[in-house]
Write a protein that binds this DNA or RNA. Structure first.
Length: 486
RNA sequence: GGUCCCGUGGUAGAGUGGCUAUACAGAGCUCUGCAAAAGCUCGUACAUCGGUUCGAAUCCGGUCGGGACCUCCA
């Protein structure tokens, strides 16, 4: 049985899908105005590991939706004429703001998904609806909320009326806001908006000149504009998954106001008590002990790391060593450590496959089941990846490849394949055969001969030459092995 | 100002009222011409001050320190 922490109940609850046909999961996705940074990576790693756990450990089919926010202040700003963020790959900028927005966000959507993929996130398993493809549905929901009496039109925009809603429902189910103690600055900013209460939020933003907008008919009148941010997730989750669905994920920052507002909109417009039965939030990451920010100079995109020679998959491994609800401290030393640790697991796979004799020698009742059990147990306990990885290492230490019978080794290969369906940090394959160039082989042979003749200085000289060429020669008792530095 | 979270060994990071987390790094040993690899063994920890308890790093309270949210930041 899988147990998950639920922000709605603030406890770890047993999980079961609402319907027989599997788990329906909605993840708040990226706003596509830039390439992914490592904070995004952590945010989207969590739902990936969650859906993998639900499928592999829970045995449930999973329907996974991750929206793409392609209409908001930042995408409008950065796609507008004169923006320094426009890139040649997006094509020519046009005089039509809508077309510019489309080209701009299409580009970054592709880039973003590509970044996720390098991180082992199963992009193929998710549906990525774009907000701009669901404008009609958002308008319908807005009308429904108006009809229910929980919204009002003011100066060309539509606002959600929190006070009216609160009279009949609880506003603050995910996050208990303290309206008496809003910080002063919040009030000041809020007053700039033409809305009745500081806590009211926008459902539909009135049109501004030069910005993309859609016509919207309310009570026979056209109110052109664009959707508010919160409404998109309510409308898309309802249309793609049906309400209530099973799990809603996002970063802790989305708990309030975004998720609270989504929930209120669904209740107000779709007349359901719950939008989702489980709400799950991942913590942020810090970089070298500090919050990642451009001003601190510790802001890294995935591409920055790759440029530094870091493998994204090693970062994935490092992140899995922390629980999703704890702040993760990203450090370069940590990634180096993760790389070494991951290589150790990969070597173990190669060794076990060697002993098994084949990649597909099936043996379901061997010692491998222990690995699936211990790792699965940790994952079933609120996606406890650090303990799951620890269980993997414990298993490796207790069952070194050389001590396995071929039958047991086969079962371990099977088990590794299963746990790696969740971790996705190694390759279950045979050790790649190393192609040694002839000149390197010749040098090695020469050195082996010198060594046999106890000509140590010549032997060392040749070994240095090999090192200079990027090869490490390791002496065994009956022969040597060569390893490429790469 | 309000609400909440955290403070574990060199580093990252789990867990638990009394019993080895794990990984990386480090030390010693075996092996080895040396090295590498491999195998074995090991170390130092639980912010601080009180309280509860037979016993707390684990529960409670204070203090100090860090952080999050209340601002369309993942």
């Amino acid at each position: 049985m899988i147990r998950l922490y639920n922000t709605l109940t603030k406890s770890i609850d047993p999980f079961a899908p609402l319907r027989d046909d599997g788990v329906r999961m909605y993840s708040c996705g990226p706003t596509v105005y830039d390439v992914a940074h490592i904070g995004n990576m952590r945010a989207f790693l969590f739902p990936d590991v969650l859906q993998r756990t639900l499928r592999v450990i829970g045995g449930y089919p999973v329907r996974w939706v991750m929206n793409v926010t392609d209409i908001d202040d930042k995408t409008i700003r950065d796609s507008s004429v004169g923006s320094t963020r426009w890139r040649a790959e997006m094509g020519e900028q046009t005089s039509d703001p809508m077309e510019n927005l489309r080209r701009f966000t299409s580009f970054f959507t592709r880039e973003f998904l590509a970044d996720l993929q390098t991180f082992g996130i199963e992009v193929d398993r998710m549906t990525n609806p774009r907000a701009t493809d669901y404008i009609t549905q958002m308008q319908e929901l807005t009308r429904d909320i108006l009809a229910a009496g929980y919204a009002y039109v003011s100066d060309g925009s539509v606002y959600f009326n929190v006070a009216a809603y609160s009279a009949n429902h609880t506003y603050g189910r995910l996050f208990a806001i303290d309206t008496q103690n809003f910080r002063e600055g919040v009030r000041i900013d809020a007053d700039e908006y033409d809305r009745e209460s500081v806590s009211d939020f926008v459902l539909w933003k009135g049109r501004k000149d030069g910005e993309p907008s859609w016509d919207f008919e309310i009570d026979g009148q056209n109110v052109p504009g664009r959707p508010g941010w919160h409404i998109e997730c309510s409308a898309m989750s309802q249309n793609l998954l049906g309400l209530p669905f099973d799990i809603h994920t996002g970063g802790v920052d989305l708990r309030f106001p975004h998720h609270e507002d989504e929930l209120a909109q669904c209740t107000a417009g779709y007349h359901v008590h719950d939008q989702a039965s489980f709400w799950m939030h991942n913590e942020f990451l810090e970089v070298e002990g500090k919050k990642m920010s451009k001003s601190l100079g510790n802001f890294y995109t995935m591409r920055d790391l790759i440029a530094r020679g870091i493998e994204p998959i090693d970062v994935r491994f490092a992140m899995l060593q922390a629980h999703y609800r704890a702040v993760f401290n990203f450090t370069f030393d940590g990634v180096t450590a993760a790389r070494t640790a991951r290589a150790k697991v990969q070597d173990y796979v190669y060794d076990v496959v060697d002993v098994a004799g084949s990649l597909h020698a099936s043996a379901s009742d061997g010692v491998g089941q222990q690995l699936i059990d211990t790792v699965g147990q940790a994952l079933a306990d609120d996606v406890h990846t650090p303990r799951a990885l620890a269980a993997l290492f414990v298993f490796m230490n207790e069952h070194p490849a050389r001590a396995l019978t071929p039958a047991d080794a086969a079962s371990v290969v099977d088990a590794l394949r299963v746990v790696n369906e969740v971790f996705a940090v190694i390759a279950i394959e045979e050790r790649p055969t190393l192609v040694v160039p002839d000149d390197i082989r010749a040098l090695a042979e020469e050195r082996w001969a010198a060594r046999a003749a106890k000509n140590w200085s010549e032997s060392d000289r040749l070994r240095d030459m090999l090192s200079a060429s990027g090869w490490t020669m390791k002496d065994g008792k009956d022969g040597y092995t060569l390893e490429s530095a790469k």
